[in-house]
């Protein structure tokens, strides 16, 4: 992070990518994550997987803690990223499988299954974090960034990883656009006509998992679901067409992450994840009021026009 920035002039120079190499890297990396989250999020939302996304995000916490412990036991610094993210992915997958099993094999409904799995995994994570705090190794202080996210200290290769991943996610969504839209709109029709609905559902889930695991470093595991859900919700007010909505949602995700990261660069003490989510929420609010597809003001104008005719 460069020397402490302040005032609105600094904010503008940050937005224009004139605030030093590190800040630029961080903001572009965050924007790449935002595009991936917004794009994938459309299908998570349309297929009604938002709560599952939240559950697997919370379920990364025990994985992060276990990754830390494993790294330490190998004599490596606890905060080595590959260990933390592998652990995060492993427990997130375990949580997704648990939700599936609990909702199909027991009498619990899916929402109850999701809530119990989320709470249980998160509780295990909190217990493990407490255990880690009592260890006599260094580095545990930095683990809390996975809870609430931080862009401070993000490295060039992390930003590049996020961009590459973002491209891969966009590629999947583009190639499977027809089929992913079909299972989201009319699952039974797709199944009756022989589309591999299970594999397609798993693809959506895998993309969500990938966004979550790569995103917790920046946005934090508590709030990452917001970057998956809010951009598509906002984009829905701008288009009645799934394709256009996906592009708009990706743009909104990128904007939110970019501005959020910029704000947290100007005020280094602000929690990055929370700021990104608040920016995304402002976009949603504006969209709900101004958006041409069922936004508040266009709807009121339309109603007045109808009354005028009558």
């Amino acid at each position: 992070m460069p020397e402490a920035l302040s005032a609105s002039q600094d904010f503008i120079s940050v937005l224009l990518l004139q605030a030093g190499y590190n800040t630029v890297v961080v903001m572009l990396g965050a924007a790449a994550l935002g595009i991936a989250a917004g794009t994938v999020g459309v299908f998570a939302m349309l297929r009604r997987r938002a709560l599952v996304a939240d559950a697997v995000a919370h379920a990364t916490l025990p994985g992060v803690a276990i990754g830390f412990l494993v790294a330490v036991s190998f004599g490596l610094p606890g905060r080595s990223l590959p260990f933390l993210l592998t652990g995060a992915a492993a427990t997130a997958v375990l949580a997704a499988i648990s939700i599936q099993l609990v909702s199909t094999r027991t009498r619990l409904t899916e929402d109850a299954a999701i809530a119990s799995v989320l709470a249980t995994f998160f509780a295990v994570g909190i217990v493990l974090l407490t255990v880690i705090q009592t260890l006599k190794t260094g580095g545990q202080a930095g683990l809390d960034i996975y809870l609430l996210g931080a862009t401070a200290g993000m490295l060039r290769h992390e930003a590049i990883t996020l961009s590459v991943f973002s491209l891969i996610a966009i590629g999947f969504v583009t190639l499977l656009f027809k089929e992913l839209t079909l299972i989201a709109f009319d699952f039974e029709f797709a199944r009756a006509h022989g589309f591999p609905v299970r594999a397609l559902d798993l693809t959506v889930l895998a993309l969500v998992l990938a966004v979550v695991v790569t995103g917790i470093r920046v946005v934090g595991l508590v709030l990452i679901v917001a970057l998956i859900v809010i951009p598509p919700a906002a984009a829905r007010f701008w288009s009645n067409h799934a394709g256009r909505m996906t592009v708009i949602s990706g743009a909104f995700g990128a904007m939110s992450a970019y501005f959020g990261a910029a704000i947290s660069a100007v005020y280094p003490d602000t929690p990055t994840g929370a700021v990104i989510v608040l920016v995304a929420f402002s976009v949603l609010l504006l969209s709900a009021v101004l958006g041409p597809a069922m936004g508040l003001i266009p709807r009121m104008l339309g109603a007045r026009k109808l009354r005028g005719i009558a």
Binding site: L46, F185, D186, E188, F189, A192, S239, N240, H241, A242
Partner: peptide, 12 residues
């Protein structure tokens, strides 16, 4: 399928 089986608010 039955018309009621899908979400007609879908962006399509």
């Amino acid at each position: 399928p039955q018309r009621s089986s899908v979400d007609w608010d879908f962006p399509a």
